[in-house]
Design a protein around this nucleic acid. Structure first.
Length: 680
DNA sequence: AGCACGCCGACT
DNA sequence: GTCGGCGTGCTC
């Protein structure tokens, strides 16, 4: 009779802990296994062998086989998954298995061999992903440029001890943070260790990938970005697992990359919101990167020109070390001049405040480039009746339809930015029959049209979610800026992020203060960071840059600090405010979010959940309230704010409370918990 | 999450 | 008479 070792295995199941199986030997932690599951099979990961059975032994089945063709996952990854599951109140299996590329968890693609092991039968012919390297870095190894004094000091601190230390690389835009990463990476590789480099989920990561590949032509790099196909992702992941790759570059989920012997973790643009996972376990990739560095006992570098206030508070508290880069690496480049501009009193045909339009014309004449930033895609955010108070509203959402130019270019259509519903533009007002329906407000399409009309000789491009939908289209727009075949780039949020345009000397920002009306306590932080980032696009080479910001509130403290480009002053002041008001990061927040067909259902569920328990000292449950967009796709959306004095108290409270919430009859109410929510 | 089982409306 | 709607419950 074969030995029966009871083995705890994680499987992809929401909320679940682990399941017990028999194995004939003691399998290593992290070993992938094929399991009998109901009628079929599925893939799991061994969390522990030799455990106490958690169910009667007759219910325990033997594993189908161990997938010994691949090494076990590193223990640090298992522990990271365990931490994530505990902190964010989800199951380990869900967290861990979600971190494995989907093709490698398809049970049907595994076959049992004669010797009892299991082999993967697919993925033989998938070719290795080759990055789309742009012209500047095409396959020639690039020499490491000399670092300036500040960069050198930063590098020395990062490489001073191989043990866990969290560094914040706080460098103004253009100060050469990437160069510090690359030198630190070289140092780490030379010590025989591997490097994990996390980047935000934006089109521009190709650029950093290309730099890494050019700098380390002989070092195997695995890329785990969202642009890859499932197959490519699977190969990259296997490269990390099998020790083929020494550097992993990837977006947030790469924090779980099965890379061994990690000696350095870098989180580039650590303030970026795309590090927060927005479904399933809602973890924050930057926070998990710090935890992973802790588990690997290696340094972690959080780089940003505008560190998140959470990170800044950690600096102030002495938990993270601060490394400053105050000078632009290109010594000829100076910080741009910032000027506030009043909105045009009467809307001009060119769509810009007069001062901004003149500045754009001047750049055209000087053959320099302009970037006009407007955080609203589409033609206009609202379509309204001129005669009555009718507004085109989405029938599925609590939101206005946005007016978009149709593909045909001649016509328009209504699109809901929340549920993606498309509608034809009505010919007359459905309410009063009036034929004058007017677009209200401006979007990037309208601005593009207006500028094209006013400046017929200018080469104008638009970069927003609509023009970058297809793979590679974002890169093309950026290349056109680089090569100088675009004079004016009109774009949303996505144009704000870390790209060097040598000939860009003017940045115009429209509608900058719109977000200040948001009730979210992070609105000011986000606006300030965004404006600092946008401003950083101007004048990165030898020509001085100018930034014109349209605002109705020129006296707002934020703009005074922006003109000084004094991030620290704003961070310090706003953090003090948060401390005084008892807001994160000085207290811990979590949200219980619920959605259902009707408001009553969603609200009642939250009220029931709230009434389940008397929160302990230091913990507080607020009243259920509608979410920022109270209805999307015909689902009413509500939320309940939970506050605790510390993260530990939050964790302890949620743990016991959610057991009871789970026992509630939710019926048709869908709900989840978001610990450390980024948006309230 | 899948995938089963289980009871009530519009089709051949 | 059945095909199928998705409510609820289980998976070691």
């Amino acid at each position: 009779m074969a030995r029966q070792v009871i083995t705890a295995v994680a499987v992809h199941l929401p909320g679940a802990e682990c399941f017990d199986f028999f194995a004939t030997t003691e399998l290593p932690r992290g070993q992938l296994v094929l399991l009998p599951w109901g009628n079929g099979q599925r893939v799991g990961v061994v969390l522990a062998a030799q455990v106490q059975a958690s169910v009667p032994p007759e219910r325990i089945k033997p594993i189908a086989g161990a997938i010994t063709q691949w090494p076990a996952l590193p223990v640090s990854v298992l522990e990271l998954a365990r931490f994530t599951a505990t902190y964010y109140q989800r199951g380990v299996g869900e967290v861990l298995l979600a971190a494995i590329p989907e093709p490698l968890t398809r049970a049907a693609d595994f076959a049992l061999e004669h010797d009892g092991t299991v082999r993967f039968t697919k993925l033989k012919r998938v070719k290795r992903a080759k990055p789309a390297v742009d012209g500047s870095a095409a396959d020639q190894p690039s020499a490491a440029p000399r670092l300036n004094a500040e960069q050198t000091t930063a590098l020395q601190h990062i490489t001073a001890r191989p043990q866990f230390t969290a560094h914040v690389l706080f460098g103004v835009t253009g100060s050469g943070k990437t160069e510090v990463y690359l030198h630190a990476a070289a140092h780490t590789l030379a010590r025989g260790k591997s490097v994990l480099l996390l980047v935000p989920e934006i089109a521009l990561t190709e650029n950093l990938s290309a730099q890494v590949l050019a700098r380390f032509p002989d070092v195997p790099v695995a890329r785990m970005t969202s642009a890859l196909s499932d197959g490519e992702r699977a190969l990259a992941w296997l490269d990390a697992l099998q020790g083929t790759a020494r550097i992993v570059i990837g977006t947030r989920s790469a924090v779980f990359a099965p890379l061994k012997n990690v000696g350095l973790i870098v989180v580039d643009e650590e303030h970026d919101a795309s590090y927060k996972q927005s479904e399933g376990a809602r973890w924050h990739g930057r926070d998990l990167a710090v935890m992973r560095a802790h588990l690997e006992n290696c340094p972690v570098v959080l780089g940003s020109a505008t560190p998140s206030f959470e990170t800044w508070a950690n600096v102030q508290a002495g938990r993270y070390s601060l490394l400053r880069l105050t000078q632009r690496a290109n010594t000829a480049a100076t910080l741009p001049r910032i000027e506030l501009v009043e909105p045009a009193k009467a809307p001009a045909a060119h769509g810009l405040p007069e001062r901004m339009f003149t500045a754009v014309q001047a750049r055209l004449a000087a053959q320099e480039q302009s970037l006009i930033f407007l955080n609203r895609r589409g033609y206009a955010p609202v379509l309204a009746c001129d005669a009555c108070d009718w507004v085109a509203d989405c029938d599925n959402c609590a939101a206005h339809f946005a007016l978009h130019r149709a593909r045909s270019k001649s016509g328009y259509q209504l699109i809901c930015h929340h549920c993606s519903a498309h509608r034809p533009v009505p010919l007359r007002c459905p309410h009063c029959g009036n034929a004058d329906l007017l677009p209200k407000g401006r979007g990037t399409q309208k601005l593009e049209d207006a500028l094209a009309h006013a400046l017929p000789s200018a080469r104008i491009a638009r970069m927003d979610a609509d023009t970058t939908r297809r793979k590679g289209s974002g890169a093309r727009l950026l290349n056109d800026m680089d090569s100088g075949s675009t004079d004016i780039l009109v774009g949303t949020q996505m144009t704000a992020k870390g790209h060097d345009f040598a000939r860009l000397t003017l940045v115009g920002v429209l509608g900058a203060d719109q977000s200040l009306t948001s009730p979210d306590f992070r609105a000011e932080e986000r606006l300030f960071a965004l404006l600092m980032q946008v401003a950083g696009r101007a004048g990165r080479a030898d020509k001085p840059g100018e930034v014109l910001i349209e605002t109705r509130r020129p006296r707002h403290l934020l703009f005074a600090a922006l003109k000084q480009q004094d991030y620290e002053a704003v961070a310090t002041r706003l953090l003090q405010e948060r401390q005084d008001l008892g807001l994160p990061p000085y207290v811990s927040f979590a949200l219980l979010r619920a959605s259902a067909k009707s408001d009553t259902l969603a609200q009642n569920f939250l009220t029931d959940a709230r009434d389940l328990i008397d929160p302990p000292e230091g913990t507080r449950l607020y009243h259920p309230m509608p979410q920022a967009v109270p209805r999307i796709a015909n689902q009413a959306r509500w939320q309940l704010l939970i506050e605790a004095a510390t993260r530990a108290q939050m964790q302890a409270f949620l743990k016991q409370w959610l057991v009871q919430v789970n026992a509630l009859k939710a019926g048709a109410v869908r709900w989840h918990v978001d610990v450390d929510p980024l948006e309230l």
